[in-house]
């Protein structure tokens, strides 16, 4: 089974009594491939959460059909669906006394009886899921005392203990610091590659998405949904057209957005290695563009681990990047 979810002629959005239904995108077809890490990307407010809720059966589509493993989504019982799709949302758990173990244990509820008694097997599954996300030592801890990153891992363990082929995650990296984001993305890749999960996660963070996702669903309000592998979407210029706003442009070579400064100064740089990388970063940040012209008014060379900055005819020898920036800003003021 290649596609787990198939959307046909789907229209989604909100219907309200006062001003009729509000459609988010033109009618679309969409499919979620098995065994892939798919990222749903788009600017804030584009409708990522609404799309996720619609295809997880939480929100009724305005029109069209959603097939989950060849059967129409609306014909699934709630208990049946709980064994196929699990979710990780941005919702906060407000209770102060719930333990990590108890949170993960709820993932087993669709499999337990009326009194929610956990069998030995259920407990083994719960601990193995905690182990998979690296939270074994936290099982007795209180959930509300954990950091955002740890909570996110516990919620993923909950989704894993639900033992579903599909996992949906709404902005899983939103509240995480940089290292936790990287850690999370590695975990998602591991779950897809080694544990045969199909994961669909939403994100507004293109940097991470371009580095990790197998496939992108690119959305922007009112525009048709685009799908494809990340690299192809970059080359086709679609990322730029779906994300761009005034004052920003997408640098396809770096895979990053940057400000478009008017009247950029040109500078010739001859520097290699790690010093060269961060020197370029600093200059880029200050709105300078690298020039190929060695006769340029501004020049920087690294000689004997020192920066030799040439402004017109004067040469400054700088040890730190900050000194260069100070000289350059004085030059800009005088100019």
């Amino acid at each position: 089974m290649k596609n787990l979810i198939q959307c046909n002629q789907l229209e989604i959005g909100y219907s309200s009594k006062t001003d009729g239904s509000k459609r988010l995108f033109p009618v679309f077809d969409l499919q979620l491939n098995a065994g892939e890490l798919t990222a749903l990307v788009g600017p804030n407010g584009a409708g990522k959460t609404t799309l996720l809720r619609s295809i997880s059966g939480n929100l009724k589509p305005i029109s069209g059909k959603i097939f989950l493993m060849q059967k129409e989504l609306q014909y699934y019982q709630a208990g049946e669906l709980a064994k196929i799709i699990s979710i990780v949302t941005t919702d906060k758990i407000v209770d102060n006394h719930i333990s990590v173990f108890d949170v993960v244990a709820t993932g087993r509820y669709p499999y337990t009886g009326f009194w929610a008694t956990l069998s030995v097997l259920d407990k083994e599954i719960i601990f193995s899921c905690l182990e998979l996300v690296g939270m074994t030592d936290f099982s007795e801890r209180l959930f509300h005392r954990l950091s955002d990153g740890e909570r996110q891992k516990v919620m993923i363990a909950k989704a894993l203990s639900q033992d579903t082929p599909i996992i949906f995650m709404d902005e899983p990296a939103a509240f995480l610091d940089y290292p936790s984001k990287i850690e999370l993305m590695h975990l998602l890749q591991k779950l897809v590659r080694q544990h045969q999960k199909t994961i669909l996660y939403s994100s507004h963070d293109l940097d991470h998405v371009l580095q990790t996702a197998d496939r992108l669903w690119l959305i922007a309000q009112g525009k048709p949904i685009q799908t494809g592998i990340p690299e192809q979407l970059v080359l086709d210029g679609l990322i730029e057209s779906y994300f761009t706003r005034a004052g920003l442009h997408f640098d396809a070579e770096k895979g990053k957005f940057s400000h478009t400064f008017s009247g950029k100064k040109k500078i010739f740089i001859k520097a290699e290695g790690i010093n060269g990388i961060w020197l370029r970063n600093a200059l880029d940040r200050k709105g300078f563009v690298e020039s190929d012209d060695s006769q340029c008014e501004l020049k920087i060379e690294i000689i004997d681990q020192k920066f030799h900055l040439t402004i017109k005819t004067k040469i400054y020898v700088c040890i730190k990047i900050e000194e260069i920036l100070i000289q350059l800003s004085e030059y800009e003021k005088a100019d």
Binding site: S56, N58, A78, G79, L81, A82, I85, S86, I87, T89, D91, K92, I93, V94, D95, I98, D102, V103, T106, G107, Y109, P110, T112, F114, W115, A116, K158, Q162
Partner: peptide, 23 residues
């Protein structure tokens, strides 16, 4: 006492509870 399971699920919030099969 019969509401035990529902109450435990409700602690997670409505969306999680619903995804775990609770009406």
């Amino acid at each position: 006492l019969l509401m035990m399971k529902s109450l435990n699920l409700m602690l997670l919030g409505e969306r999680y509870a619903e995804n775990l099969g609770l009406n």
